[in-house]
Design a protein around this nucleic acid. Structure first.
Lengths: 319, 319
DNA sequence: GTGAAAGCGCTAACAC
DNA sequence: GTGTTAGCGCTTTCAC
């Protein structure tokens, strides 16, 4: 593999001159620089990232840690982050699971964007303080070199619950996602706030896990129990809402006639289920862009500008 | 930032002993090793990936280059690749666009898995020969240190076209994806092969771009043209098929009564559109797993075992 | 404008 | 069993 030495030898100059030429240092006259560039390209030289990173103590890389690639939500977020980073000359590493925590510690990245509830807040705080700044998307965590960029779930969920009440529902139930997550907790707060301002109390709460099967399970249990049914079901996300709708439809219930169902996220599927899902639309691509910008802000020692991302109620047919 | 020197000083040993201890070299007695490990952890030491990579001339990282994060197909593929790599102690870098070509050249990864039609075959061949092995998922490209792991599109498309003929369609049209891609070309071959064995000729061909809007456009043009309509439309992927179905339904056509429509990929949406889409099911997660295994085979100097991934006809209601 | 040389933080060959 | 040392391939300071 050709190294900077080989280029220097071939060009009859020192390695520092090659380095200067390849990094557009103004001290090297353009004529020399272009000669060196063409020689480098001829012998197939490409600088080693490891050597550069070691010397410069930075990588021009941002780590994105997500909990899994499976969800319907991440690809837009990743796309948004990636676009922003590209435009700023940065590279993105995507990782999942425990290994992601190590990548920042190993200095494989200059900063991290985290959306992975499996990583503990304590460990994130320590990592940010010692190894590099972190933007967290999945909790409100503030600390040294760590900043949250979370969804304003409460406001959005309050708005869609209001809409459900406005549409005539009075016996409202909430389907929780994974209970102690930021997203579930704050969405639930919005649900309860909307009930309170309408002088209603929660008719029931069910426990799901943000997945479609968990929504199906909730719906099956609800039907099996018999007794009085809620007339409006507010779900903590679209996937569970779609699971609920599937089971209800199969059981012969009409939506929204017999029972209204709402979601959260506006995943692509939301406009394909029958009836099309009323939900909260989140612009995940833009969220990703903001997250990338925030990470770069931290790297550059600037203050992060944004702290909340807002959703918009998307009215369709399920409410 | 703590380095190996700091650990050595704190432990009263040399840096090589620290290195040995931390890399589980059998020469270091467990008692010493564990003392060193605990000191390292106390002072917050984490080895630098850049220094290790530079010295070892390898990264334990695989690059995955995809054309965009937007498609409904990639997340399963990425998940499959990631799982396999994790289980083998490797890390994954995901990238898009031109920058992905450079990451292997910079030796930021030991090998690459490519599914990005924008990267030219010539450039891939050169990169593989000089910088590290490549698995290509989006074309049949063989060369030094480069191996294809593509879909057996022809067989699968021939099978689903047969099914459509068997279901009564006689005037069959094909909706192309981006024309000169491996996937489109080989799927089209399967379509034509099925026609030939049934002594039929292609009723029409249309040009799409693998996207839902392009499918909608094809359908609108087809309706606007008037005249005799095909009674079976074979689409090069699900997204275009869903676009076609949407427009046909809006125009009052019954599917599969008036016209049958088939897709390819079995994306999640395929089982949600009305009528549910008959398509070719591809196990993208397993494909990813095979791709990762193949990349590791090349790194280890072993022969790649698999070269084709097979699909299965998934019969639903649109044919 | 160019070169010599130090050093980034590790690994591993070699010496003891 | 442990230490010394060379060197991976760069960037950058300092000298000329």
């Amino acid at each position: 593999m050709a190294s900077i030495k080989d280029v220097a030898k071939a060009a009859g100059v020192s390695i520092s001159t090659v380095s200067y030429a390849l990094n557009d240092d103004p001290r090297i006259p353009e004529i020399t620089a272009s000669r060196i560039r063409s020689i480098a390209s001829d012998i197939g030289y490409f600088p080693s990232a490891a050597a550069r990173n070691l010397k410069k103590r930075s990588t021009n890389t941002i780590l994105v840690a997500i909990s899994d690639f499976g969800g319907p939500v991440y690809h837009e977020l990743l796309d948004g982050i990636h676009r922003k980073l590209m435009s700023e000359g940065y590279t993105m590493i995507v990782s999942t699971g425990v290994s992601s925590a190590n990548l920042l510690k190993e200095r494989s990245a200059d900063a991290a964007i985290i959306s992975d509830i499996h990583l503990s807040s304590e460990s994130l705080l320590r990592t940010a303080a010692h190894f590099g700044p972190i933007i967290v998307l999945d909790r409100d965590l503030v600390g040294e070199a760590i900043h949250p960029l979370t969804l304003d779930n409460k406001t959005a969920m309050q708005a869609i619950t209001r809409h459900m009440i406005h549409s005539g529902a009075r016996k409202l139930a909430y389907v929780n996602g994974v209970f102690e997550t930021y997203d579930n907790r704050t969405r639930r707060e919005g649900f309860l706030a909307a009930l309170e301002e309408a002088n209603l109390t929660s008719f029931a709460e069910y426990q799901g896990a943000f997945t479609k099967p968990s929504g199906e399970q909730v719906a099956r249990n609800l039907l099996a129990l018999g007794g009085e049914r809620p007339d409006g079901i507010v779900c903590a996300n679209d996937e569970m809402a779609i699971g609920v709708i599937d089971v209800f439809k199969a059981a012969g219930l009409r939506i929204p006639g017999d029972v209204k169902v709402s979601g959260f996220d506006d995943i692509e599927l939301a406009s394909y289920v029958q009836p099309r899902l009323t939900t909260v639309k989140i612009d995940h691509r833009n969220w990703g862009k903001l997250a990338a910008a925030a990470a770069l802000d931290l790297i550059r020692g600037e203050a992060v500008k944004v702290a909340k991302v807002h959703g918009a109620v998307q009215i369709r047919e399920s409410v």
